[in-house]
Simulated scan of single mutants.
Amino acid sequence: MPTAAPGIAILGAGLFAKEAHLPALKALGSDAPPLLAVYSRSEKSSRECSEAAVAMGLEPAPAIYRDGAEMNLDALLARPDITTVIVVLPITLQPSIILKAFAAGKHVLSEKPVAPDVAGGISLIKTYNEKYKKNLVWRIAENFEAEPGFRAAGKAIAEGKIGKVNFFKAVVVNHIDVDNKWYKTPWRTVPDYQGGFLLDGGVHTIAALRTMLTHPLTHLSAFASLNHEYLKPHDTIHAVVQAGSHFHGIVELSFGAPTKSVPPADEFVITGSEGWLTVNSVRVEDKSVMRVLIKRAVKPKAEGEPATEVEEVIDNPKMGVEAEFRSFFDAVAGKPTLEIGDPLEALKDVVFIQAGLNSGGELVDLEKLAAEGK
């Protein structure tokens, strides 16, 4: 039913909407607009999401919209009391729904990636900039970019706590089996987009790097492979990467580990001229946090004295989805906000994955790919 306050709708009622988006709205409380509606292609999914919202204390119950009924997506988008939509749909479906929401005059927060491929992302951003940007806010929901832990690491690097960045390493290795809840999502089981889990999940790692590093990644040489047939088209990328003439690094992305236990390794290591830092997910008092560990060399005060090291530990709770929501809602309200969720920045993450999939060992100019789409 219409409400005095402008409200929001969630388009897509899958796992992430229920397990991440609803809790983030609950955590924001009155700082988030009321959730007035939920849309899914099936009534079952839409109803379950609405019921989950109520069980979480988000009341009144969001109205249910689905395909093939009078209460469908068009009817939802026609509601004047819904000014904003959060799009959490399959990767290949999202661009058309985003454009449909723009045409209906809605602000949009859409889940990463910005598009299934670089050319599609360029086209979508161009349409938004030319037709809708003046009146509507569009942000990409990339929770790694919003994570306080990664932002704290980026701030420490920018402040020179490890000196000038010299090189870096990102290692993300996961085991996905056929019983994994994310694999069981039909559009992930038989993906109709490049890279499979590498696109869906790999963009997170690249977003974290661009949040922390002092210069954008400009070139890569990579190889991609498929190690488990059920994860096709690819499940692993290894890349050597350069950031202009400033520094270089290695990125390892795999969803094809053979066992649930994976070799121990720091997720992110960034080494500078005066020290290094790592960023890892850890458990502290039964809570999941992002830990930034900084080690810095201290020059001896007098000749002949030994060099020493200082250590700093920064722990931040994992709250990327909540942070990205808050930033988006502030932007819609015209308030000062974090500079996150820019579609052009999110495009860089897709650029990296697409280049990594297609490089075959050849050097790829990432900036050229981002500009031309091929």
Rank of each mutant, 00 (worst) to 15 (best):
T3V: 12
I8S: 04
I10F: 03
L22Y: 02
A24C: 07
K26Q: 05
G29E: 04
P34I: 07
V38Q: 07
Y39A: 09
E43P: 06
S45Y: 04
S45M: 08
S46I: 14
S50N: 09
M56I: 07
G57A: 03
I64F: 00
E70T: 02
N72S: 15
L76K: 05
L77V: 04
A78R: 10
I86Y: 10
L89W: 01
L93A: 15
P95E: 06
I98S: 02
A101L: 01
A101Q: 01
A103F: 04
L109M: 15
E111D: 15
E111A: 14
N129S: 14
K131P: 03
G149A: 08
A153T: 05
A153N: 08
A158E: 10
A158W: 00
K164V: 03
N174F: 05
N180A: 08
T185L: 13
T185C: 05
Q194K: 09
F197P: 04
R210V: 07
T214Y: 00
H234N: 08
H238R: 05
V240L: 13
V241W: 06
P258W: 05
T259V: 03
K260P: 09
A265E: 13
F268Y: 15
S273V: 01
W276E: 13
S281G: 15
S288E: 14
R291K: 12
V298Y: 00
E305G: 01
D315C: 01
N316V: 06
S327K: 03
D330T: 05
V332Q: 05
K335M: 15
P336V: 06
F352E: 04
A355S: 09
G360C: 13
